[in-house]
Design a protein around this nucleic acid. Structure first.
Length: 489
RNA sequence: GCCCCCAUCGUCUAGCGGCCCAGGACGUGGCCCUCUCAAGGCCAAAACAGGGGUUCGAGUCCCCUUGGGGGCACCA
């Protein structure tokens, strides 16, 4: 089994591309086949220089390795369409010689005019067939004389064509509705209709995954393949992703708004937003594919084992970011402490916090169940690495008590803690709870004060576990400071 | 305008004629746990777009309507 992911480097790599690449990858790995990366860069005007690198980065980040491609080579190269110009020209010539295609000398301006008139008459715009009737020998002579030309595919004008999409079943269209499309441009480069069909055949592709936007031209592609006398690969047209509301595709403006909320539709953005590639993979694989009626958590290994071709859903899927958050939490919690420590470290560094590995490893168990994205680790646990913390004074005042009274409570706590040779859950929790009771207060009141004093935050990992990591000296120091703050009120 | 595709809870989906007064998940609400916040556990509300057929029987098959998506380039 040979599959291919064939993006055109015309912009940023979005989630839909990621899913497409993922399905190809899974199928190849599951069956022991090859996964080919082919760059469809035949349109030089739309080419974006940075796009190809972003593509590589995005796929690497998702964990998708390809077996053949522009950068790694392979037996069926070149894998960049701009380097296969001669191949398309040869194949266009083959179709002309067999009577399946013809030279066309029509000026684009005239064609545009014809299109306008057809639309005015409420017809489907199509080529009017001027050059289709040309004598082949005469046309060849004009080409030889250097006249500017393109090559068009000659579609049958009668009858019907039936193609099979493996997800949807048979689709039959009237041949009269299939236009004589240009398959070779005047600059000699093949257009998609020719180039992709030729490459898929030459590269021995057995299963094609592509977007459902290709469905309307699917019959044309079938005709082209048959004109060469080839057996077509199996086609799977994947539905598009809709915006979260479910109404329409994501626009540029909406994509920008998304970024403000900590989301994106571009694969490369998810890393710095604090998402795990495992979570993104788990999330997108389930948009249009399912395993059964209840299993949703998958690692890449699971997917390689369980991926199948008969469980695609043909309807468009709206992107659901809260589900991504859910999967991210699930995968964060399934990571080993070492692994999680390694992954959150860059976020501390980016926040200007030099997080040492030993301490990082100690705090990971305290935050693993409390963060939804990796960047949240900094907010949750940054205080562990700071020399001192400055809680807002009002956070130190116990609800229902005055500042002075709160300071008194803090003093009593300090006394108890000072009497301990070490502060951790085993040594401190019991005496502190006893103190709380003796004071006639609730645990939440006293522990809240201490939490603010020691961590500088209202929300933190559990108090005594946190104190243990911070260390006795620093804990006492921070409580003393809190008392001074309260007394200064 | 014409052509093609799609249609189950708000969202992702299971369902391939009787197992379905429709199952799972996210989200939402409630309860439990609890030093904060989470995580976890339990419970709840929430859908077969509408109308015709076919059939003993339809969410499942067919047709129409409606809604949504895509396409109609010397772009992919």
């Amino acid at each position: 089994m040979r599959v291919r992911f064939a993006p055109s480097p015309t912009g940023r790599m979005h989630l839909g591309s990621g899913r497409m690449a993922l399905y190809n990858y899974l199928l190849a790995r599951k069956t022991g086949g090859q996964f080919i990366l082919r760059v469809e860069d035949t349109d030089q005007r739309r080419y974006v220089p940075t796009a190809e690198q972003e593509l590589y980065d995005g796929m690497h980040w998702l964990g998708l390795q390809w077996d053949e491609g522009p950068d790694v080579g392979g037996p069926y190269g070149p894998y960049r369409q701009s380097e296969r110009k001669e191949i398309y020209q040869q194949h266009a010539k083959m179709l002309i010689d067999s009577g399946h295609a013809y030279y066309c000398f029509c000026a684009p301006e005239r064609l545009e005019r014809v299109r306008q008139e057809q639309m005015k008459r409420k017809e489907q715009p199509h080529y009017d067939g001027t050059c289709r009737a040309l004598d082949p020998a005469e046309a060849a002579a004009r080409v030889a004389a250097g006249e500017r030309h393109v090559v068009r595919f000659k579609t049958p004008k009668e009858g019907t064509t039936t193609v099979v999409d493996e997800i949807r079943g048979a689709i039959t269209v009237q041949n009269s509705s299939i236009d004589d499309q240009i398959i070779l441009r005047s600059d000699g480069l093949g257009v998609y209709h020719l180039a992709a069909m030729v490459d898929d055949h030459l590269m021995k592709i057995t299963h094609v995954f592509r977007g459902s936007e290709w469905l309307p031209s699917f019959p044309l592609h079938h005709l082209i393949i048959r004109a060469f006398g080839w057996e077509p690969p199996k086609f799977y047209h994947l539905s598009v992703f809709l915006k979260p509301s479910g109404k329409g595709k994501m626009s540029k403006r909406e994509a920008a708004d998304l970024m403000k909320d900590g989301f994106s539709i571009f694969v490369k953005d998810f890393e710095e937003l604090g998402y795990l590639p495992e979570a993104v993979v788990n999330w997108i694989v389930l948009m249009g594919w399912s395993y059964d009626d209840h299993t949703e958590f998958f690692t890449m290994q699971d997917l390689i084992e369980k991926f199948s071709l008969d469980r695609f859903n043909p309807s468009p899927a709206a992107i659901n970011f809260s589900k991504l958050d859910h999967f991210n939490g699930l995968h964060i919690r399934s990571l080993s402490h070492e692994d999680l420590a390694r992954r959150i470290k860059p976020f501390f560094l980016k926040a200007g916090i030099q997080a040492d590995d030993a301490r990082l490893l100690r705090i990971v168990p305290l935050i693993q169940h409390r963060i939804g994205t990796l960047d949240e680790a900094v907010d949750m646990a940054g205080f562990f690495f700071r020399d001192e913390v400055t809680p807002p004074v009002e956070d130190l005042v116990i609800q229902g008590l005055s500042a002075a009274q709160s300071a008194q409570v803090a003093r009593r706590c300090l006394e108890v803690l000072k009497g301990l040779p070490e502060i951790n859950v085993e040594t401190a929790e019991e005496p502190m709870r006893a103190l709380v009771e003796a004071l006639g207060l609730k645990p939440g009141q006293v522990f809240g004060l201490l939490r603010s004093a020691v961590t500088g935050q209202r929300v933190s990992p559990p108090l005594f576990e946190s104190m243990a990591v911070i260390g006795r000296e620093k804990v006492l120091e921070r409580i003393e400071r809190a008392i001074r703050l309260l007394e200064g009120m």
